[in-house]
Simulated assay, not measured.
Amino acid sequence: MLDRWFYISTSRLDETDAERHVGDIVAISVQRNRSLEVTGALLFTGRHFAQYIEGPPAAIAALQESILQDPRHQDIGTIACGSYPTRHFLTWSLGYAGPSRFVASKVEGALTDALKNRQGGAQALLHMLEQFAFPGSS
């Protein structure tokens, strides 16, 4: 059985350096997630992060604790967590599509929806993350 954690947070990154910092996060996370057998995806709108991670329960707990302590995040809200039977991101140690104003405008609406309507909104946001996934990519 796998665990998952799906959260949304408000970014504390300075907008002038945000893209560079997110690139650093992704580079470090890809390597760390591979070693922990964790897969998932990350969205960054410039204002918010949304991340879905899945893997062994101990690895997810460790990553969750790390993210909760990370000063680049504030107002972290869990929208889904716990045991889950299958992976959504089988081949992605951390999928990240990069910055995009168009994507950011669409994602902001989905993030708001997910926070208001946790179950239905979380499913819609997860579906959006899955649409970014390319089989075999990481």
Rank of each mutant, 00 (worst) to 15 (best):
Q74E: 11
R87M: 03
D17S: 13
E65G: 05
F6I: 03
Q64N: 10
E37A: 15
A18V: 07
E54N: 02
F6M: 04
L13H: 07
A41C: 13
G46S: 05
D70P: 03
F89D: 13
P56E: 07
P71I: 08
A41L: 05
Y84F: 12
S83L: 11
Y84L: 13
D3P: 01
D24Q: 15
D75Y: 05
R32G: 03
L63Y: 05
I60D: 01
C81S: 15
S66Q: 13
E37W: 08
Y52G: 00
H88M: 10
R20W: 02
A59G: 12
F49G: 02
D14H: 11
D70T: 04
E54L: 07
P57A: 12
D17F: 09
A58T: 11
L36C: 11
Y7K: 07
I8R: 00
F44V: 10
D14K: 09
F89G: 04
R72A: 01
Y84M: 11
L68Y: 11
T10K: 14
Y84C: 15
V22M: 08
Q64R: 15
Y84S: 13
H88A: 14
E15M: 06
Q31S: 10
Q69I: 01
F44D: 09
L90N: 11
I79T: 04
Q69E: 12
I25L: 13
L42D: 07
L63M: 11
R47N: 15
W5K: 00
T78L: 02
E15W: 01
Q64G: 10
F49K: 01
G82C: 03
T39F: 00
R4I: 11
E37I: 01
R4M: 14
R20K: 14
A61R: 14
G23R: 14
G82A: 05
R12N: 14
R12Y: 05
G40I: 00
T86R: 15
Q74R: 15
Y84G: 04
L13V: 00
T10Y: 02
H88C: 13
S83E: 14
V26L: 00
P71A: 09
T16P: 04
G46V: 03
I79G: 10
S35P: 00
E15T: 10
G55F: 01
T16Y: 06
A58H: 13
D70S: 12
G55V: 00
A62G: 07
R20T: 15
L43C: 06
I60M: 00
Q64C: 08
D17A: 09
T16V: 13
G40K: 02
I28R: 12
R34I: 00
G55M: 05
R34A: 08
A58N: 07
A61Q: 14
S29F: 06
T16R: 12
F49I: 01
F49C: 01
G55R: 06
D70L: 06
E19P: 04
T45Y: 08
R4L: 15
I76L: 14
H48W: 11
A59N: 11
R87K: 07
D14I: 05
D17M: 12
A61D: 14
L36E: 08
I67P: 03
Y84H: 14
H48Q: 12
